[in-house]
Design a binder for these strands. Structure first.
Length: 594
RNA sequence: GGGGCCGUAGCUCAAUUGGUUAGAGUACCGGACUGUCGAUCCGGGGGUUGAGGGUUCAAGUCCCUUCGGCCUCGCCA
């Protein structure tokens, strides 16, 4: 046995035991000719080991050659350090190991950066040495948290009659949705598999097969541009249930969310998560994934703007736009004029807003370069509607309705964070329901599925499918936490005729539908039960539970924004004979185009 | 595809208006130290300023091109 204990578990109660420990040299301190201290580290903690010339000059000499990150084994006796020598910063600080034998398993090159203390090096370097970065305690804890979450999820579903079923990774490319990652077939020349964007169709077919409660912790792939919270491959907790309605799924996931948050974070949430309609959150927060840890709702003052003397507001309202604003309570002195006129204006500009109007509330009136365009009554009405008090900063965007939503929602998130309007440790989950089924695609002059093409229309709106498809609500739902989409799902269509009708609206003709989705449509023709499901983004959940805002910190081997793996060098060129097997030729490559 | 920030010693950063031999902390190497624990003290080595080109008497600094990382809009059923 190479070790009898770990570096995190020894206490005074183990005094006088002989133990073997293995680990990495975290730090070393030579103290004169007689003494060497080494802090030995493994996944479980750190333990101080002490070498003395008295005990063995030979071991002491070798100990003096130890350097950071060398991997060693020590054998020795657990000693209480003495009342004045306890180190309260270490869990094992009461004791140390008096070493009687040392084995050096492996020497380390000088580490690429320092694991603790000081600032983190740039992420490029960390990713190149990911195996090393992963030794840092924060990343170790994140990976541990990820494991805990996966296990809690499995336990929850396993005790409720769900079966974990794997679905293919090599599948078929389907139209719409994200860009597929493709895998060429060697056997079928010119044909390609697609990696799954999600196991959607397979899980629906499993419902048709009678596996009425399914889940899977499934890897998914989408070849789209990345963000701080998006990786090209990511993990979904995929769930599907048969003979259920929307609320059955929501209740089941409420239970999952409250139980896993309790289990991995020890936080008690209300048993039933609040449910809002899409129309409601879009109006009040301008976003379908509002951060509900703070208020600052969007308020419409378009009617006041329309009758004021402020030309910008008037013109926007007359042109069918909206004037909406938010109230940054007590922030009138926190943003300089330069910040407001430049930084915040540019910030909302990223979302298409042409300007940002602001007014400060002081002495019951509005203070602003544009205040003169508003009568006393109009000012009073704005203050009242915005719930304004002296010291408040009111910010307005006048633009196309969608632009006011996007710009103010982003501004609200930014101000909420900058003004510290919430406790970053809290979790505020909510369901958003009744999404639109379809959204009009102006470029292609047709409807797109808002969620995906297998989503059941809300029964109350079925008539509208013919008359006004854009108004049809879907029987779909998103779970939102702290401003992130944390899960998404819907009741599925189980009638092949309804499914065909939706394909028609999406401008997918019968022939194309048969060719691309035929295997689903055919399944629906052989006795398909009502079913519904949801998928939770595991990576985002771990990120949120870790209090992080970077998804790479919760993935063991993540990819960069350009989807490369700096550790392995993927993606990379392949040998010509591999391409020849696949009958693939690469066009337009320069010699130096690596 | 668009916008923004960044790249100087192993690492984190500094370097006046374009001007002396590109510095500091830390890491690394050597030495001192009998209870250290972010050890301390003394000494030392270490630079293709991401790469390429240009302007200039002179470029880390200015210009062009390019590579890479991060944030973001579009995109992500």
């Amino acid at each position: 046995m190479l070790r009898t204990k770990t570096c995190g578990e020894l206490r005074r109660a183990h005094e006088d035991e002989t133990v073997k420990l293995c680990g990495w040299v975290n730090s070393y301190r030579e103290q004169g000719k007689e003494l060497v201290f080494v802090d030995l580290r493994d996944r479980y903690g750190k333990t101080q080991v002490v070498f003395r010339t008295d005990d063995s000059a030979e071991i002491d000499a070798r100990a003096r050659k130890l350097r950071r990150e060398d991997v060693i084994q020590v054998e020795g006796v657990v000693r209480y350090r003495g009342d004045d020598l306890v180190n309260p910063k270490l869990e094992t600080g009461e004791i140390e190991i008096r070493v009687s034998a040392l084995t050096v398993f492996s020497k380390s090159k000088t580490p690429p950066f320092e694991l603790e203390g000081g600032e983190l090096p740039n992420e490029e370097l960390r990713l190149k040495h990911r195996f090393f970065d992963l030794r840092r305690s924060t990343l170790q804890e994140n990976i541990r948290l990820r494991h805990d979450l996966s296990q809690a999820v499995r336990e929850y579903f396993n005790t409720r009659d769900f079966l974990e079923i794997e679905t293919p990774i090599l599948g078929r490319s389907t139209p719409e949705g994200a860009r597929d990652y493709l895998v060429p077939s060697r056997v079928h020349h010119g044909a390609f598999y697609a990696l799954p964007q999600s196991p959607q169709i397979y899980k629906q077919l499993l419902m048709v097969s009678g596996f009425d409660r399914y889940y899977q912790i499934a890897r998914c792939f989408r070849d789209e541009d990345l963000r701080a919270d998006r990786q090209p491959e990511f993990t979904q907790i995929d769930v599907e249930m048969t003979f259920v309605e929307r609320d059955d799924v929501l209740d089941m996931i409420d239970g999952l969310v409250t139980s896993v948050i309790k289990k991995v974070k020890g936080i008690e949430l209300e048993g039933s998560l609040p449910r809002y309609t899409y129309a409601d959150v879009m109006e009040r927060f301008g976003s379908d994934k509002p951060d509900m840890r703070f208020g600052m709702e969007l308020i419409d003052i378009g009617d006041v703007g329309a009758v004021s003397d402020f030309g910008v507001f008037k013109a926007v309202v007359e042109g069918g736009g909206r004037v909406r604003g938010i109230n940054a309570k007590g922030a009138s002195e926190k943003y300089s004029r330069r910040l407001l006129d430049k930084d915040l204006k540019d910030f909302v500009g990223e979302y298409g807003a042409k300007g940002l109007a602001y007014m400060k509330v002081a002495g019951g009136k509005l203070e602003s370069t544009i205040a003169k365009f508003f009568s006393e009554d109009q000012q009073a009405e704005i203050i009242k509607r915005m719930d304004g008090e002296d010291g408040d900063l009111l910010l307005f965007v006048a633009d196309k309705p969608a632009v006011t939503s996007a710009a103010l929602a982003a501004l609200r998130n930014r101000l909420g964070k900058e003004l510290e309007l919430y406790d970053p440790e809290t979790f505020c989950p909510l369901w958003v329901v009744d999404f639109p089924l379809l959204t009009w695609n102006e470029d292609e002059k047709r409807f797109d599925a808002e969620h995906h093409p297998f989503c059941e229309p809300n029964k109350e709106d079925v008539e509208l499918l013919e008359s006004d498809p854009g108004k049809v609500r879907a029987d779909s739902y998103d779970l939102v936490i702290n401003g992130y989409e944390a899960a998404s799902g819907s009741v599925r269509i189980h009638d092949s005729q309804v499914q065909q009708k939706i394909f028609d609206l999406l401008n997918i003709n019968e022939e194309e539908a048969e060719s691309r989705f035929g295997f689903l449509l055919e399944g629906l023709r052989y006795g398909a039960p009502p079913h519904a499901g949801v998928a939770l983004g595991l990576d985002r959940w771990v990120m949120l539970l870790a209090g992080d805002d970077n998804i790479r910190d919760v993935v063991a081997f993540p990819k960069t924004q350009r989807a490369s793996d700096l550790l392995s060098g993927a993606p990379a060129r392949v040998d010509d004979h591999q391409l020849k097997d696949l009958r693939i030729e690469i066009e337009g490559l320069d010699e130096d185009d690596e």
